[in-house]
Design a protein around this nucleic acid. Structure first.
Length: 879
RNA sequence: GGUCGCUUAGCUCAGUUGGGAGAGCGCCUGCCUUACAAGCAGGAUGUCGCAGGUUCAAGUCCUGCAGUGACCACCA
């Protein structure tokens, strides 16, 4: 093995080998229980960012873990056509050539879009691969593939036939730049410093004026009434009269409605039903006419009379000027409000009246809520269920038609007889059989196809073997920001089309931020490219960094020092493997995959200690990972590997390897534990574990298909306790050496004066020599009157005393003992108080009471010993 | 306005059912001890945001407050 692991050299080769051997392929005819994850398909416009890296790492950890546990594991990958995002990019690229999409026409445009898909779709896929993800590439899919397009059409037709999809004229969000409708979920609300203007209309047949407040004066061209609160004494007399919009000279009714807030503004509201969602409701309620005053590019249309042709904001200025000129402008004020913009292009949206396709959502709400409340759908962390529920409770019908070209064209055909035929491969009108039919020009919202992803990718609407075997999927891993875009829609679509929930558990990952806690963004230029981290530190270091010391659903900061620390950890494991390789003995080759655990009974105490600790580790982390506590599990593995296996077991093994009687079992244990560490690490850091596994294990061809360590029924608690005690004593000795400024190279003499446990210390002599820097070890029975150097430092242990000779600084030792004495007195005091408390005795758990009682005994013992020793020193000093 | 987070060592963060506060980085001291200087050994540092409450026992549960962040909904 090389001195250091070089990710750049190995990772690509390893991944190619995995793919070539088809290790990630899931068999739909397998007898084994299946475990399935549908990968949230990245957009073909996208490039790999830290969010993907985290999201994919979490999925890969779960997938590899389940695969090792023996499940028939499928992680199904793919990409999303990302209708509007992709179309915008292509329009942009056309613009650079001086062309528009209309110049090309629909067919040529789509051809170009498919070229884009071929080029950039594979780019993101390859970037994902560099993360080492164990997805089944045989089943890779794309939201606009033939099969998935059929699924989309089938879904649309089903929903239409059941009356859940309808076409209707409603107020929708319109993006004047993209010239398409968008759904509620795609509207982003931004804080805005606006102005509110007070203007007035004259009241017909009187000399009075009514003053109202508005932030969008241009919409008054579409006003169809003024409204006041029925309880408002100020305006009662005007109700039923007419107000006059100047310049366009339209008379509009003055009506009353509870909706009007008497406190806000003047208490008079202008009502523009065609351009405001609240006004729209009032318009319907009172049967007001709805006048659309905007063209699709947000210029004023012919209904705006003299203002027609002007841009919406230029019209606004002109209207204000004109109101001033006739003295119907009252005042203007600053106002903090929020404006709705299109999340893709940041253009300020306009509510417009349009005829569009909608999905009626009302009937889907209950099944979606029931799924959660019955416990069949779970969120991790659970609090995210609130976002899910809250969205459902306030749901509106889903506008699914988009005035775009790149996407699934709506399968609705219009006949000259005015009948609409909805279906696949339609050639003639279902009503009059006319062949003169025209397909709807619009495409579907990109989320309409994503909503089907978990089952469409498995073959739905066909009842394929894949669908039977792998659906419903088990887990969805995604970001909380798309709970309502995607999660809700998958749930209701799946219930509706398959009768089943699409998945059982939803895991929400947090946001990866920069080192200052800011969101990584292109405009700030603070993004850290995962590919650069991989290039420099390797995929494994990156993956570790994203999961270690973090918890689910929490945002985290990404900083390079953390990557380095994790790289160092991987280096540590690499070197542990090198140590084993260097000590391998050709005459002692074992296949640890065939371990018969009864052999461990004959192993040494220290072997049993590490075996027992490892067994407990497996127990804990298996539970942790099953509960999706990925950070917790890796933290424990990290700690075990470095602080137990490397720092203690390997160090001790160096002594045991010199002993011919212990050598074989020691080598066995070294290898057994290392390989099992590799296994529990493998879901997190797949590459380095594979590389070492192949180098050391030499029996199985890959760690990918190896089995997760099983919890063994051996119990070496006693041995574990013995070695923990020895570790404590060694630590105390090291501590004293350091306190007394004993040089590292200086050897000391240690004398154990014992009441019992002679053999334990006899067996551990070499450990003390190498780990505590001793050259002479004496073991004496306490009954044989001790003859110890009075200047020796004494350590009090349970089974007796430890004396360190050749240490001179008695003053320091007295200080140390006095400090320790203070600590013990404090502890004794605390334990005594607890035990004197009748409430504690009657209410606390039994084992806790026993623990405190044991403490009192031990501490009193130690205290006596310390006092005795202090007396001895003081006597010596007085001599 | 509503909902949900966060506040723990100098920094970044863990902390599973309430039962003596942890990690990584940084800092201090000493070591090139042939697996690893990307390392080894030792060390220092915390009224767990504030105030109440429940409990024998609270970083952990409840209430309020303060700071901070996210999301949702918005009054024209």
């Amino acid at each position: 093995m090389e001195k250091n692991f070089e990710p750049k050299k190995s990772e690509k080769k390893i991944y190619e080998n995995w793919i070539e051997k088809d290790y990630f392929h899931a068999d739909s005819n397998s007898e084994k229980e299946s475990f399935t994850i549908s990968m949230p398909p990245p957009n073909i416009t996208g490039e790999l960012h830290m969010g993907h890296a985290l999201n994919l790492t979490l999925q890969d950890i779960l997938t590899r873990f389940k695969r090792m546990q023996g499940y028939n594991t499928l992680w199904l990958p793919g990409t999303d056509h990302a209708s509007i995002s992709t179309e915008l990019k292509i329009v942009d690229s056309l613009k650079k050539e001086g062309k528009t999409k209309q110049d090309l026409g629909r067919d040529k445009f789509l051809k170009r879009a498919w070229e884009w898909k071929e080029k950039y779709g594979s780019l993101i896929v390859n970037q994902c691969k560099s993360l080492g993800i164990s997805t089944d590439w045989n089943r890779e899919n794309f939201t606009m593939s033939k099969e998935l397009s059929l699924a989309v059409e089938t879904s649309f037709i089903n929903l239409y036939k059941k009356g859940y999809i309808y076409k209707g004229e409603k107020l929708i969000n319109w993006c004047p730049k993209c010239k398409t409708t968008i759904s509620d979920a795609e509207v982003e609300h931004l804080e805005n410093n606006a102005k509110i203007y007070y203007l007035k209309y004259s009241v017909a047949g009187t000399k009075d004026f009514l003053t109202f407040a508005t932030t969008r004066p241009e919409t008054l061209l579409g006003d169809t009434s003024l409204a006041v609160n029925p309880k408002d004494e100020r305006y009662k007399k005007y109700i039923g009269k007419k107000a006059i919009i100047p310049f366009i000279n339209r008379e509009i009714p003055i009506l009353s409605d509870e909706y009007v807030d008497m406190e806000f503004g003047t208490g008079v509201v202008k009502i523009t039903p065609a351009h405001d969602f609240n006004d729209y409701e009032i318009g319907i309620k009172h049967g007001l006419p709805m006048i659309n005053i905007l063209n699709d590019d947000a210029t004023i249309n012919e209904n705006g009379k003299t203002y027609s042709g002007l841009d919406r904001y230029i019209a606004r200025e002109k209207i204000l000027q004109d109101f001033k000129s006739i003295n119907q402008f009252v005042l203007e004020k600053d106002l903090q409000n929020s404006i709705g913009v299109h999340e893709k292009c940041e253009t300020i949206l306009e509510p417009l009246l349009k005829t569009q396709w909608f999905v009626k959502m009302k009937d889907f709400v209950k099944p979606c809520i029931d799924a959660y409340e019955s416990g069949n759908l779970n969120f991790y962390p659970q609090r995210f269920s609130k976002i899910y529920l809250n969205w459902l409770e306030n749901i509106h019908d889903w506008c699914i038609s988009r005035q775009l070209w790149w996407g699934h064209r709506i399968p609705a055909y219009y006949c000259e007889c005015s009948h609409i035929t909805v279906g696949t491969n339609i050639t003639d009108c279902e009503k009059c059989n006319s062949k003169n039919i025209k397909q709807d020009e619009d495409v579907l919202d990109t989320w309409f196809s994503s909503a089907l992803w978990p089952f469409s990718t498995l073959g739905w609407p066909e009842q394929t073997q894949d669908l039977k075997t792998f659906f419903p999927t088990n887990v969805l891993v995604t970001g909380p920001d798309i709970i309502f875009f995607w999660v809700v829609r998958m749930v209701f679509s799946s219930i509706e089309h398959t009768g089943k929930l699409p998945f059982k558990d939803v895991i929400l990952n947090g946001i990866v931020r920069d080192e200052n806690g800011r969101k990584m963004s292109k405009s700030l230029g603070n993004g850290i490219n995962p590919l650069e981290i991989i290039e420099k530190y390797g995929t494994d270091s990156l993956r570790l960094t994203l999961v270690i010391g973090s918890s689910l659903g929490m945002d985290q900061r990404f900083y390079i020092e953390k990557v380095e620390a994790n790289r160092n950890f991987l280096n540590k494991i690499w070197n542990a493997a090198r140590f084993i390789e260097m000590n391998q003995d050709k005459n002692l080759e074992f296949d640890i995959s065939k371990t018969d655990f009864s052999i461990f009974e004959k192993f040494s105490t220290v072997d049993k200690w590490i075996l027992n600790k490892f067994n407990n580790l497996v127990k804990e982390i298996t539970t942790n990972i099953e509960n999706y506590d990925f950070g917790m599990a890796i933290g424990k593995i990290y700690d075990f590997t470095w602080n137990e296996y490397c720092d203690w077991y390997i160090e001790i093994s160096k002594q045991n390897l010199k002993n011919e009687n212990l050598k074989e079992n020691t080598l066995y244990t070294l290898k057994y534990i290392l390989i099992n560490i590799l296994k529990v690490l493998h879901p997190y850091v797949p590459f380095i574990t594979e590389e070492i596994f192949i180098n050391i294990q030499k029996v199985e061809p890959t760690i990918v298909l190896s089995s997760w360590p099983k919890i063994q029924n051996y119990n070496f608690e006693k041995e574990e306790q013995i070695i923990e005690n020895i570790k404590d004593i060694i630590k105390k000795i090291r501590n004293i050496r350091h306190d007394m400024n004993v040089e590292q190279s200086k050897k000391i003499s240690i004398t154990f004066v014992l009441e019992n446990n002679f053999s334990i210390f006899e067996d551990s002599k070499e450990y003390f020599k190498s780990l505590a820097g001793a050259n002479r070890i004496n073991i004496i029975d306490i009954k044989n009157n001790k003859n110890i150097d009075k200047n020796a430092v004494e350590i009090q242990i349970e089974s007796g005393f430890v004396y360190l000779e050749n240490l001179v600084d008695i003053e320091k030792e007295i200080q140390r003992l006095q400090k320790e004495k203070q600590n013990i007195i404090k502890e004794l005091d605390r334990a005594t108080k607890m035990l004197n408390n009748p409430e504690f005795l009657s209410k606390a758990k039994e084992f806790l009471i026993e623990k405190e009682k044991a403490k009192i005994i031990n501490f009193n013992d130690l205290l006596n010993k310390i006092n005795y020793r202090l007396d001895t020193y003081l006597e010596t000093e007085n001599d």
